[in-house]
Design a protein around this nucleic acid. Structure first.
Lengths: 344, 344
DNA sequence: TCGATTTACTAAAACGATTTACTACGCTAT
DNA sequence: ATAGCGTAGTAAATCGTTTTAGTAAATCGA
């Protein structure tokens, strides 16, 4: 009963159960096939009495398994990522894994630094959403080389390189195709688009979907109706301002956050939503249903994606073999920000 | 050049530099006071050539230092926590620490499980926001006992037990005092409050602040004007509905999310903000400035708080001595959701 | 010149597990 | 009688560091 009592080690348990550490280890790790139940019982009792649990560091040192996966996202305070990370953490905890979380703040240099750092921590796997910067040809090459040299299973989440690597993302092309169809069905022909960085596959594929839907109706999207920026509020404001001047009847923003910016720009321009201009978003943040004019948007199945991320990375950790890319479909959420002008 | 080359160990470096592992360790850890520069140079060169970096697991095993801090929050997808965690991660990384993130999903059982788990991972420190459940007398006792037995430095962030433990939080009492004063200055006397769980010090102290401001003007807040719930949207809707029936002129919601709910309830009741009822929030989420009627609110200085959290936990890790509680002041953000009715 | 000190370095013990390769014993079958 | 085998374990190596307690040689002071 004196002061700080140290954690019991496997030796303490061995001593108390009057067996060797080897035996303790085997019993506690379920490798006791060859041992009589009486011994196992003694060991388990001793372990319980001493409140023993194996030191994870010592164990990891010999087994080369930490049960940690590293997660690198551009910005956890972005609603999409925070929700995804929450689901990932909760889900992967069920398999006995913890996550070390890193924010790259959209900087390629941080991606590199964190990836190396996590590998140095002997994580069992890596879940990556590279920063926008990491999609320039040069940076992409660096990241890919870095990962190849690491021998740590990794997977791309939401953003990915097209030439290899396991990935889990929403089906961007199909989703924005659906969104555009919805706009078309409501009579919109003059559509403006606010995209995220076109270096990202997410934005490029969403744009592709828009173009496909349009061309199927014999329409096309000229470049001057596409405003490229980031996925943030300010981009929405600027893009909205620019597109409103061109008298579009609908604006499709590639993120809800951008859509909020469009609302702001409409307010400034004295235009009402959806009477003067329709707005369509992408993500379905919790806030989108709360707006004065609830936003029509494509809902990302964040929980499904998160679970798929976990399933894939665990598979990679176990098999060390490439997984097929997983594409999850987004769902159209019709609210009030899109007006039907087909009868006009 | 054959296949997978293994990571270089300290022995490899020692061999190449023609010294002992001891020497390598000392040089690379800056304990080379007694060694001639020539040797140091040789060791450093060898290390560089082999691309050597010490295995953190092996090191942690002997030094008892992991450079990891555990973070347990109720819900990372809550904007306040996600922003806080982002700043915490970025800041603490500057000191060479990583964070393992856990979501308790507001469940006491998860708090216990994660705290034990993180301690078992030999984290150097713990940053905790206990779930609402963990504030019942019984659960609180359990958590406190658990922490006391762990010998891991820990700190409470945002929510805390009043009887001990280092803590970092916004000055809730002063903040809501200021908010209430603002309401009073604008002529509001019949004020309704939507609180979070009153088991949480944050809610209790905010309520205290309201009462103090009111009583200084000879007013008081009767219980029927206080709606207790959670910090979420649904609580705002329900509380708003209830309070609007009592013809309050202003509603002070203890979170922005609740305030959004109040907006919704006002819309349903056909009341305009701020013409028919004023609304005040708390947090200043990024969305609050985006609303059709931008929300007046108390802005939590999240980055400041996060930095203070890092400073404190690092101090605790180094000194192992209690830190003074840190209280950060919130700032009043005046927007359009509060009307001046003092001239009526 | 000799003992004491300084310089430059190292052997070996930890840290706390897992894992491989044994051993000692009793029993059976030939 | 003994080879062979199953049972019930264990000793010792290993993982890759840090750290303690030295030592051997060179230098210094008197």
């Amino acid at each position: 009963m004196n002061g700080v009592k140290k954690k019991a080690t496997i030796k303490d348990v061995a001593l108390r159960a009057e067996v060797s550490p080897t035996t303790v280890s085997m019993v506690l790790n379920g490798k006791s096939a060859a041992l009589p139940e009486s011994t196992c019982e003694r060991v388990r009792a001793a372990a319980a009495e001493l409140n023993y649990s194996a030191d994870v560091l010592a164990r990891a040192l010999v087994t080369k398994k930490t049960n940690i996966v590293g997660v690198v996202v551009p910005d956890i305070s972005n609603a999409f990522f925070s929700e995804a990370v929450r689901h990932i953490q909760v889900e992967i905890a069920r398999y006995g894994y913890d996550i070390i979380l890193c924010n790259s703040e959209e900087r390629a240099e941080s991606d590199e630094r964190y990836i190396s750092l996590l590998a140095g921590r002997n994580v069992d796997g890596l879940i990556l959403t590279p920063s926008a910067e990491s999609f320039t040809a040069e940076n992409a090459e660096k990241i890919k080389r870095l990962l190849a040299g690491l021998h740590v299973p990794y997977l791309f989440f939401d953003r990915y390189y097209t030439d290899g690597g396991t990935r889990v993302a929403v089906d961007n092309e199909a989703s924005s195709y659906a969104a555009t169809q919805y706009l078309l069905e409501n009579g919109h022909k003059k559509i403006g688009v606010i995209a995220g960085p076109l270096t990202l596959n997410s934005s490029r594929n969403r744009l592709k979907g828009v173009r496909r839907a349009l061309s199927e109706r014999g329409l096309s999207l000229s470049d001057e109706f596409v405003y490229e920026g980031r996925y943030d509020f300010a981009t929405g404001v600027n893009g909205g301002e620019m597109l409103l001047k061109k008298d579009v009847t609908a604006i499709f923003a590639f993120s809800d956050m951008q859509a909020y910016g469009v609302y702001e720009s409409a307010k400034r321009a004295g235009k009402r939503i959806p009477d003067d201009v329709s707005v369509m978003g992408f993500d379905d943040n919790i806030y989108s249903s709360v707006l004065e004019v609830p936003l029509s948007t494509m809902r990302q199945p964040v929980e499904t994606i998160a679970k798929e991320v976990c399933r894939s990375i665990l598979a990679l950790i176990e098999n060390k073999e490439a997984e097929a890319p997983a594409c999850c479909p987004a769902r159209l959420v019709r609210r009030s920000s899109v007006a039907d002008i087909s009868k006009n």
